[in-house]
Design a protein around this nucleic acid. Sequence first.
DNA 1: CTCGTGTGGAGAGCAGTGCTCTCGGTACGG
DNA 2: CCGTACCGAGAGCACTGCTCTCCACACGAG
Lengths: 246, 246
Amino acid sequence: MSRALLSFWYGARMSRAPATARARARIELTHEIKETARRQLAEVGASGLSLRAVARELGMVSSAVYRYYASRDELLTALIVDAFDAVGAAAEDAAANTRGGVVKRFTAVASAVRAWALANPHDYALIYGSPVPGYAAPTATVPPAVRVSAAALTVVADGVASGEIDVAPAGAIPRTVRADLARIRDEVAPGVPDDVLVRTFLVWTAMFGTISFELFGHLHGVVDDYETFFAHQMRRAGELIVTGKA
Amino acid sequence: MSRALLSFWYGARMSRAPATARARARIELTHEIKETARRQLAEVGASGLSLRAVARELGMVSSAVYRYYASRDELLTALIVDAFDAVGAAAEDAAANTRGGVVKRFTAVASAVRAWALANPHDYALIYGSPVPGYAAPTATVPPAVRVSAAALTVVADGVASGEIDVAPAGAIPRTVRADLARIRDEVAPGVPDDVLVRTFLVWTAMFGTISFELFGHLHGVVDDYETFFAHQMRRAGELIVTGKA
DNA sequence: CTCGTGTGGAGAGCAGTGCTCTCGGTACGG
DNA sequence: CCGTACCGAGAGCACTGCTCTCCACACGAG
């Protein structure tokens, strides 16, 4: 079933009850399958997610599930979209509801992302870990995926607008990179100069790098107090964005 | 078969020809299975790696493979160890054979890691992506995993020793974090002060974050010229390590 | 050289997977 | 009210990891 059609159903329910009981059942079962899959994902991980097991848990036969999701990958895609939306919402929430300067707001966003990742490790692995089999992410995953980055860039853009962030140029930037940065600026970071974007990107990749390292076990035996370590790194990272120094 | 016993066989071969033809065949087949698995890994990825398919390609029956690797996970572990060794060797090579300052040597290491990752994407995903099923990395993977980080820290330690790197303290560091840093310093980064280690860690996670983003498709549509973008980011990152500014 | 031992290949088999197809019952819309 | 389209059930296909048994044969000890 196409996402557009699904939106239509939901849209229809907004205004009035769904036309038929069948349609209502379809929406609910589709949702129920996804939720059951989400629960299983949290238990056994993406590679252990079994369509048959989902069907069993719902008391239906495996072939019936295919009426709702054409393949295991399509079900995974639905979970991926949900995961992107969840982490994006967490980041947006932190950015919107934290008062203070750039460092405070940025660290709040970083902590929110890490907290979500710790609470939903398999979801995190699903979207930020190795891509599944031969699976190519459909374009439907792009908009939700952008939300989390956009939330961080909002904080940076605010800092530039308020004059808090040092905008002095720091060095030459290759032409092709300037083109990439200009595109990003136009879309989600209005007014943020190239050098600030470069620093922000460095910090942003460091954030995901650190979270991935922690979740995937690469800091085992290296770092003891993950929470404090991450908080400190992100405070320094925030200061780097603001002052250009760390 | 235990890893210790395997080492014994190899050790024996070092000094003289293996005692028996059977032992020689075992060594060679063990190796051959792993190489075939490596080739399949490059083609279909970790999740698609099939022990039966490996057996087929070698003209043996699947159950026979179990004489050499007790499980699919054990075979994967062997591949993981090899991958860590390969990327570690690439990094060490770049660090050892690049003349110049810290920025030049560090960017050489970063480029080497990225080049290896691009050439062996599935190996990269295997070691730096989401961990496989319920699989817990045995301690045998730790020493090879450390090599790549140690190579980078060698460059930084050299820069501190030569006086190139700015070692002025930059701010307060939580006690537990200082303890972690002290341990790292003692083991692989002699003489590198806390603040430099903090910057290095920021940069190091940014490097892996950027490579993962690129390989896992998160920069699709965001960055056009990956090569130039990465090189520029890493030059800035190297300067951050040296001067504390970016 | 001979003989018991144990290594390792072959095959059958088990429980599970994703996915396809066919067969009915039934809710729905014209 | 009736034909259509939907949807659950079941059987089946090709595959997986892994276990077990059987047996040939290379090996080391005597």
